[in-house]
Design a protein around this nucleic acid. Sequence first.
DNA 1: GGAATGACAGATATTGAAATCTGTCATCGC
DNA 2: GCGATGACAGATTTCAATATCTGTCATTCC
Lengths: 195, 195
Amino acid sequence: MAATETLTAERILEATEEVLRRYGPAKATVVDVARVLGVSHGSVYRHFRTKAALREAVTERWLSRTETALAELTAAPDRPAPEKLHAWFAHLFEAKRHKAGDDPELFATYNVLIDENSGVVEQHIGVLIDQVRSIVAEGAREAEFTAPDPDATARALFDATSRFHDPAYAPEWRRPTIETEFEAVVGLLLRGLRA
Amino acid sequence: MAATETLTAERILEATEEVLRRYGPAKATVVDVARVLGVSHGSVYRHFRTKAALREAVTERWLSRTETALAELTAAPDRPAPEKLHAWFAHLFEAKRHKAGDDPELFATYNVLIDENSGVVEQHIGVLIDQVRSIVAEGAREAEFTAPDPDATARALFDATSRFHDPAYAPEWRRPTIETEFEAVVGLLLRGLRA
DNA sequence: GGAATGACAGATATTGAAATCTGTCATCGC
DNA sequence: GCGATGACAGATTTCAATATCTGTCATTCC
């Protein structure tokens, strides 16, 4: 009713994302976020203890969208594990590349978090590796993969494909040959997994 | 005879390396280098057209030491290709890790070059990939490897092991589990190569 | 004659003062 | 009573003046 809806964490996150998109992580301030919401910056601090916590929450939400999309792929039934694993990495690569290209400022925010050693990124990687582990274990169960230690194998797969999902390589993702290079690496890894 | 030997490019490189080691790439100046040599900075410019060229020459020399050591390994006769490839990557990892740990300032200089998109680094990578290609081709000849396109395969191997030689990951090379992770990745790749 | 010098202009980096921002909290208003 | 406010202190960033550095070149010196 009132022109001012109640101030929720969700609304603050929305506004923060908008401000980050517009100004980037270097210029965005908590006062900017408060201004967008038409409140004082003190009110923002009622919901997020620090600016870093706010930044983390935005990134967490942003990363969880990728996690969810990949989780669906992971859970898909009746699909051979090798094909599934290939599709999973291709999708991850595509998602990261898309984010780097279309949301450069939010992507930069994500990189700030990496430098800060925030647990959010570590956790994100943990979730992703766990999805890989799940596909590897499935492949081993169906005797398509040899993987004595699915956990270590999943991590190895993730490490070996770093060039295609680690933000440090984002500038290289525009090269026209990058798709071919991706296929060469994933092809080699899948061969290595074969039972 | 004279207290002052003639000023050669080699002597300048030596002095530059010393200065870089002491002050790091951010603080080292051409005047510092000249002071170490007891000459005016104008004399340094007689041998190197710009400061960037000097920095490049130092790094090139530094990188070529690694290239030479690995070339010996590559050329070793009577050694199975899989074993050779494993040793090659282990040696590269060890060399890079050693440089990052023992020569942090020179390592930082190397990273400056990467940001400058200097051809020196690209060339270094080219030389390394060519060595890998040579081992892969040898393995294919001896029917130990399946590698329809040794060049693409070499690049894929290099890409897949980025985490263990790309300076961007240097901070991670202190983790105690890194060796295990290296072995997991290389093991998987060697399996993928097997004929 | 040819290498070395050092004064110089323009570019880059440093510094310190002023402005802005973060995070707190006593107070306000519903 | 409880969330919102805005004044405030300390931390951080910005900005402009100052200092240093890079790269050139006319001149010096062997």
